[in-house]
Nucleic acid binder design. Structure first.
Lengths: 155, 155
DNA sequence: TTGAATCCCATAAAATACCATGTTATACCA
DNA sequence: TGGTATAACATGGTATTTTATGGGATTCAA
């Protein structure tokens, strides 16, 4: 029994005509071992679907409960958006979930999707959009941390 | 039960047609004793694969969780880059892991690899590249820190 | 009853576990 | 200390399992 649960890696999967996608096996294993469910919602910051464990949302709810003056009104509004949008997605015996129209549209996903691990969360992108986004992020990180610049290839 | 865990030494191993490599026995022992797994990702600063324990990434995820709230965008870029690239590698009963195309390509590894200890992390290099890199690092250290050769007074 | 959602079966490819062998390193004993 | 027995390791090959994915059958609700 492992003790660490992180969504990782970048996995490309097809979306069939019915809207079905295989949830990556690693992700399934996490939900299974923790006996919890996957929850998805529209990302508030990017044209992609965001997913996490139901546990994480539960934790968020508890935090809000306990923090009287900690959370600003804006953040409170955000929780409305999240919980209002979030939905549980149980996978079938072959490991697939069926994404909704709303989510697919928000992420511009039609026939293929890319799962991107984010640690405690993950995202689901339209493959082309993700390619661009990854390049953008990489460029930004390199710009802000010049010491990380990759050395030129040796010949 | 030992109490110190450091990736050390430089070990040369073959990579077969399937991309399988023996993880050095010492490295395996560490993962085993700590009941954790090895995680690998493309180095951001060099043409090599970088590896660490899943524990380390879990710590990072927790730090991010605590430092920012659920919706924060500050660390968003970084988590995408790190966790999106990282992948767990469980070794089989003979101690081998199977590196992915993406990683092998990034490190220009084909049929052999060199594991280089880095303490809490380690790197996997194409043997020729590592040879050059080691020479380069050595030269640079010598140039920048002449006191290592012949110590003299500070001014 | 019709469209959609869910379940079940089939299949090909890929990942993983397992077995066998030569080699090297380690332990043991005289 | 030297030599030998033993164990550990890397590595090639093969068998088994898992995974993604297409298609069809069944169920459910409007």
């Amino acid at each position: 029994m492992r003790k660490i649960f992180l969504f990782m890696d970048t996995i490309f999967n097809k979306v069939d005509a019915k809207g079905r996608v295989s949830l990556p096996a690693d992700y399934r294993a996490i939900a299974k071992e923790l006996s919890t469910e996957i929850v998805c919602y529209r990302s508030l910051s990017a044209p992609c679907i965001e997913g996490c464990l139901e546990d994480s949302l539960d934790k968020l709810a508890t935090e809000i409960e306990n923090a009287t003056d900690f959370f600003s009104e804006t953040q409170d509004n955000l929780t409305n958006l999240i919980f209002g949008d979030a939905k549980r997605f149980a996978f079938d015996s072959t490991g697939r979930i069926m994404l909704t129209e709303k989510l697919l549209k928000h992420a511009q996903i039609t026939d293929a999707a890319v799962f991107v691990g984010k640690g405690r969360k993950f995202q689901i992108w339209n493959p082309q959009n993700w390619e661009k986004e990854e390049a953008r992020i990489r460029a930004e990180v390199m710009k802000n941390r010049p010491t990380l610049k990759a050395p030129k290839e040796q010949e």
